[in-house]
């Protein structure tokens, strides 16, 4: 099986869908000639032409709005935000148009917005955001956030084929730092399905995106030191949440740690914690713990960014508290 980086897997998935379906097209800033700020769409212009790989003006609201319009009449646009941070300029289009279209008009809206997100790249307060919680609260937007190359390819294909607006959150730190097996076949992963990335009976760790990788390391360390078996649930899709997989794991372990790179307050972890509390209170043997970034903008200077972001140590320490509880 070919081994690819996370970014190659995204490109591969996009490429295959464009080969497969002529109604799929790309629009965004510097995605054509330049191949995208991160080179996700390198070579796409040469293969698919200007009609399907559209270099737009700098206007995120127009990019997302136009994607909505094209999707309304049956095309399958994939809009790229150069950085997830700039999606704030398209807030009205996503929250008021995209999210409410099916509810009001019963018209499918098959569109994807790609959001290169996350920190640890020294991008500072405007190039590092984890945007998921802004949209998680909005009924009508699906959100996926793959953590591995395999999931990245399977989920970009799923997002493109889904008849609803899907926000595809791709973590910039993973782009070239994570490699993995990616089958050279046309596989599509279901949206709304989590994946157990490590099996264990003692503690459930629920995570997604970049934090999967630090979580795996922390879990191995805890196992090596204490023999504690952590089960890691990689959400992969944030909206809709895979409650079945989450609940099954929590029933088994009775202890829960939720980890995300996004800031803690009002994050995805808060919702998951509430769900477990409402449904599985009697199964719990310890308070649910959340690990995430500090409630602040992402700072620029490396020592501050390191302090701000969750990491292997912070996850390990939280696991230890749960183990000892």
């Amino acid at each position: 099986m070919p081994v690819m980086t996370y970014i190659e897997a995204i490109s591969r998935g996009l490429w295959e869908e464009m080969e497969r379906d002529e109604s799929v097209f790309l629009l965004g800033e510097d995605i054509g000639t330049y191949g995208g700020a991160f080179k996700v769409t390198k070579g796409f212009l040469e293969r698919f032409g200007e009609n399907r790989v559209i270099d737009t003006v700098i206007a995120e609201s127009a990019i997302v709005g136009a994607a909505i319009g094209a999707a309304l009449v049956g095309l399958k646009p994939i809009a790229e935000m150069q950085f997830a941070d700039f999606v704030t300029n398209a807030f009205t289009q996503l929250v008021n148009n995209a999210a409410k279209t099916f509810f009001r008009w019963n018209i499918p809206l098959p569109m994807v917005v790609r959001l290169p997100s996350g920190g640890k790249i020294h991008g500072g307060p405007f190039h590092s955001v984890n945007p998921e919680a802004w949209f998680f609260h909005v009924p009508g937007l699906k959100i996926v956030a793959p953590a591995t190359p395999y999931d990245a390819k399977g989920l970009i294909k799923a997002a493109i084929r889904d008849p609803n607006p899907v926000l595809y959150i791709e973590h910039k730190f993973l782009y070239r730092n994570i490699r993995g097996d990616v089958p050279d076949i046309d596989y599509v992963l279901p949206i709304g399905s989590a994946d157990v990335k490590r099996i264990g009976n003692d503690i459930t760790l629920i995570t997604y995106g970049s934090m999967l990788h630090w979580s795996l390391k922390a879990a191995e360390r805890l196992y090596a030191e204490y023999g504690t078996e952590v089960e890691i649930v990689d959400l992969r899709t944030l909206m809709p949440l895979d409650k079945t997989t989450i609940f099954e794991s929590v029933k088994k372990t009775g202890k829960v740690l939720i980890v995300h790179e996004d800031t803690v307050t009002g994050g995805i972890g808060a919702e998951i914690s509430a769900l477990i509390n409402e449904n599985l209170f009697e199964y719990l043997d310890a308070p649910i713990i959340r690990v995430g970034a500090l409630d602040a903008p992402v700072p620029y200077s490396p020592p501050l960014e390191d302090y701000f972001l969750p990491d292997e140590n912070k996850i390990y320490n939280a696991l230890k508290i749960l183990k000892e509880y």
Partner: peptide, 24 residues
């Protein structure tokens, strides 16, 4: 900015300079 932001992204109210954010 005490390291919280970089480049020209600072404000100096006395000199009346207000730096940019990245969002164009």
């Amino acid at each position: 900015t005490k390291g919280r932001d970089g480049s020209g992204h600072y404000a100096d109210p006395i000199l009346r300079i207000y730096g940019n954010i990245s969002h164009l």
